[in-house]
Nucleic acid binder design. Structure first.
Lengths: 173, 173
DNA sequence: GCAGATTGGTTGAGGGCTCAACTAGGGGTA
DNA sequence: TACCCCTAGTTGAGCCCTCAACCAATCTGC
């Protein structure tokens, strides 16, 4: 596509679908976020961290692996784990073999918080999504999501590599 | 549903679909947000405000109407408009007939910012969604979104009313 | 006309996120 | 060993959001 070419605007139909989709996603996020915040006093990202940790063997993970698994930046994870440590949900442990490294491991209190939060959250997801859709639509939603993820995943990786390249070689020589 | 009843957990299939969907939405949001932030120096919520204002007759709207139209809280809108006013994209005007009221009206600079941002944003939406889906899938996505919105809309309204009721009558007498 | 409730909007504190800068340990090569 | 780069993780500033408190103007019932 040339720099000056006419943008490919959305058709009326596409625009309608896009606005509905964006609205649906926004309402869904807001709904789940407030449900979790009010009933379990945690944002959804922390819930994801607790779930991921709880599924790890020994309920311990390297910070870096946890960041990849939750598609979180290192910075975000570091801030989040710091706060969750204050809550008593997680404890950090040093890595013996690589002194730079750090483990996050789920505490009993963390597991308890997750187990308290899960039923309400799952019920909210079921009530607002799966109860509303036919089995056929659930399958369709899965396919559509997979297509979008497959398309965006390499793009994210490519962007990250491009950034790294630029940092190493700012002049683009 | 009784208070102590067993939660209706998701099936494996539902869980797979849910994780894919959540991943897709997360990647999509992140992708569009950074595209808009880097290319047009605005968050997506400000883009929505500019679009909504630009479509209003006279490119003016009451703050309250703008909040409803963008499903934004009054507080969020107030903060956002304050910042956009600093950017020169919007100006506030007092309402003569209701001295509590306030109008937000789009400036030339605001319209220019929107027109500069739109092509890149639309292209990103097209590339990451509509180019990836068949016409049939676009239709499916529209239907699914509409179902979710229809279900969640009254729930939001009901929750808001419930909150108001509780504030007026905290004891629930 | 006036007291009380409601509405329109703003404000400040606090939380979560991003971005850029930084510390510190590990690994390769001469 | 010395040097350089890379990796793991943390930190602080700044932005956006939410929540609760607040002010001022309007409406309602008496």
């Amino acid at each position: 596509m040339g720099l000056m070419s006419e943008p490919r605007w959305l058709t009326d139909e596409e625009q309608r679908v896009w606005r509905d989709f964006y609205t649906a996603v926004g309402m869904l996020r807001a709904h789940l976020e407030t449900q979790l915040q009010q009933d379990a006093n945690m944002p959804h990202t922390y819930y994801e961290l607790l779930v991921t940790l709880s599924e790890a063997p020994g309920q311990v993970m390297r910070m870096s692996d946890l960041a990849v698994a939750t598609r979180s930046s290192r910075s975000r994870l570091s801030h989040a784990i710091a706060r969750m440590e204050d809550n008593g949900w997680v404890r950090r442990r040093a890595c013996e073999t690589d002194k730079r490294g750090s483990f996050a491991h789920l505490t009993q209190a963390g597991l308890a918080a997750l187990e308290a939060a899960a039923p309400g959250h799952v019920e909210a997801v079921r009530a607002s999504v799966f109860d509303q859709l036919s089995p056929e639509q659930v399958r369709q939603l899965g396919d559509i999501s997979a297509v979008i993820v497959d398309n965006l995943s390499p793009r994210c990786a490519a962007a990250a590599e491009e950034l790294e390249r630029l940092e190493r070689d700012p002049a683009g020589a």
